[in-house]
Write a protein that binds this DNA or RNA. Structure first.
Length: 569
RNA sequence: UGCCCGAUGGUGUAAUGGUAGCACGGCGGAUUCUGGUUCCGUCUGUCAAGGUUCGAGUCCUUGUCGGGCAGCCA
């Protein structure tokens, strides 16, 4: 057993190395404590999954713990609805925070006391500059800022003023509490950053208790500190904030976790920013945060992605500091890899073409044995009803078929999966339009089950459903939401919205085998030769089955077809 | 023309001064009652120039390119 574990699948990335070293030298204690700190202002997406798996994964791996903490310091943007969805998504992904569920808002009292301490130490002051003035005084990227005229107020005055801010005596925007650092710092975050601002808004957890709220920088590090976090792992854009993170903790003289930054996930053909995802939702360009085309965890779940596939994906993409752009094909690969092992196979016809077996008795039907999962013998077999009239996929018939087309064509023989060999003898067409309406075929009774006693081979096997027994269902064929590989890189005067794929979903009415009648919401099947389909958790029901295509099977025929049509006829 | 970070095949990611490897992807083939799966083969890489060293993807210098930062957002 231990021999199989000698080669860990996940590679050793730089954060793991730092953690390992720190655990060895015990500079931050003996136990690893990480945290995932979402702001409850939107739904979690696949990019968050990277962070979640990193933080929870590391904790699990090294016998530590990972906290789930909501970074809820801005009541204007945050809502309880988001808290609920985030809890659900993290749990669904397979992680357990145990009793370690926290809210930055739980620390508001402590944070307030911390602020008073800095004032007392002459390291913070109340500033009366207006927002525009603060911006002016801050300077620019290349020019230093200048001191606020209020920078040298006495401690007593600052304390009193800060108390008034808290008591609601000051109007919004009139005053802020600032750290007294250095207006000339080349790092703008150190130019006397704002610690507290006045926001006369009720908070989703603290209600009306507060009308001043700490800024991210004044809340995050201290929250980490209070919880005894050892390694505070965040994304690259906070790199410039680290000196401030360190400054607060040092000047407060409290436990000092180590902040480490890594590059966030980017995926081709999708957008990842919460702002853009919100825009898609609000403009009703998608059906909601859980639209199966969204890269949100709720969308992916509804689409048919499994937690296992997502975790595997997060493991494979690695962790580094350089900006990256992961190809969606890797995500799709991880899904197929997982589902191939587990998804029951079933037959469904998306674009039906009627086939009549002219030498098959009218009143007969039989039950054929279908293998539920060739990758998993324990999944067993099922009975699939067969009769004289069937539906096959329109794509599986071509009137003028090239040599490499192994499916049905006039005069050609194919195997019906688990059924008989059939030969197409007649094509019935609409006289006016020329559209193929029906195929008339003969079947070979000796080939029942899919093998011929004379050993003759057929190149192709196609799927089918019995017309009499089939269930009608809806299938939603999803494709990528954007046509462009890099939707955010749109022309100057256009938005990422212009890169939406107009064919990102096609809804078809299809026929599925009767065994699917009792399929539960959220369960996933492989429609043989087509792809993986998930019973929609919102719209599917007893009256009407609705399936979402999570991902199609790889299709090498399509490739041949594109390259040159599979040769001469 | 400030500060910080980064640069390895098409895309990711390893190699921690000592044979540039793995995965996805592409291409070709074998097997197959899913044109799926599986298996085999194959393709392409250390940003540039100097320096240190017996030896540099790795260390140093300079340059180039990419990213982040001027919310009372996180």
């Amino acid at each position: 057993m231990s021999q199989t574990e000698q080669t860990p699948l996940s590679s050793s990335h730089f954060i793991r190395q730092i953690v390992e070293e720190d655990l060895e030298t015990k500079v931050l204690g003996e136990r690893l404590i990480t945290r995932f700190p979402p702001e409850p202002n939107g739904y979690l997406h696949i990019g968050h999954a990277k962070s979640i798996c990193l933080n929870f994964g590391l904790a699990k791996e090294y016998g530590g713990v990972c906290h789930l903490r909501f970074d809820d310091t801005n009541p204007i943007k945050e809502e309880a609805e988001y808290v609920e969805s985030i809890l659900e998504d993290v749990r669904w992904l397979g992680w357990d925070w145990g009793e370690h569920l926290y809210y930055a808002s739980d620390y508001f009292d402590t944070l307030f006391a911390y602020a008073e301490k800095l004032i007392q130490d002459g390291k913070a002051y109340v500033c009366d500059l207006r927002p525009e003035e603060i911006r002016e005084y801050r300077g620019t990227l290349t020019q230093p800022g200048k001191d606020s005229p209020f920078k040298n107020r006495s401690r007593e005055e600052n304390l009193a003023l800060f108390g008034e801010m808290r008591a609601g005596k000051i109007e919004e925007g009139a005053r802020v509490l600032r750290a007294r650092i250095d207006m000339a710092s080349p790092n703008l975050n150190l130019r006397d950053p704002i610690m507290y601002r006045i926001l006369k808004k009720p908070h989703h957890r603290t209600g009306d208790k507060w009308c001043i709220y700490p800024m991210y920088d004044f809340a995050h590090g201290q929250s980490d500190s209070i919880e005894g976090i050892t390694h505070s792992i965040c994304t690259l854009e906070f790199e410039d904030h680290r000196p401030l993170y360190d400054w607060y903790l040092e000047n407060l003289g409290i436990h000092h976790p180590k902040q480490i930054e890594f590059a966030r996930l980017n995926l081709t053909y999708t957008v990842m920013s919460k702002r853009k995802l919100l825009e898609l939702v609000e403009k009703e360009l998608v059906s909601g945060w859980d639209d199966p085309r969204m890269p949100t965890l709720s969308g992916l779940r509804r689409r048919g992605y499994t937690p296992e596939a997502i975790r595997e994906f997060c493991d494979r993409i690695g962790v580094a500091k350089r900006n990256n752009m992961i190809e969606v094909s890797l995500l799709e690969h991880c899904l197929r890899e997982d589902l191939n092992k587990r998804a029951p196979r079933v037959m469904a016809v998306l674009r039906p073409l009627r086939v009549v077996l002219i030498n098959y008795p009218e009143d007969t039907e039989e039950a054929l044995d279908g293998i539920n999962n060739p990758e998993d013998p324990s999944a067993g077999t099922r009975k699939v009803p067969f009769s004289r009239v069937l539906y096959i996929e329109r794509d599986d018939f071509l009137e003028e078929a090239p040599r490499k087309f192994f499916r049905l064509a006039p005069g050609r023989e194919v195997r019906l999966r688990y059924g008989y060999y059939i030969t197409c003898v007649e094509v019935v067409k609409d006289e006016e339009s020329g559209e193929v309406l029906e195929l008339r075929c003969t079947y070979d009774p000796a080939t029942r089950g899919g093998n011929s006693p004379d050993g003759r081979k057929v190149k192709g096997t196609i799927h089918w459903v019995s017309a009499k027994h089939a269930l009608e269902a809806e299938a939603r064929l999803y494709d990528r939401l954007f046509i462009s590989e890099f939707p955010e890189k749109s022309a100057e005067d256009s938005s990422f919205i212009d890169n939406l794929n107009p064919q990102s979903v096609e809804t078809v009415s299809c026929f599925v085998e009767p065994s699917l009648a009792e399929a539960e919401a959220g369960s996933i099947f492989q429609f043989e030769r087509l792809g993986y389909f998930c019973v929609d958790s919102v719209d599917s029901g007893k009256e009407k089955l609705v399936f979402n295509r999570a991902v199609p099977l790889r299709d090498s025929w399509k490739k041949i077809e594109k390259q040159g049509g599979g040769g001469k006829k």
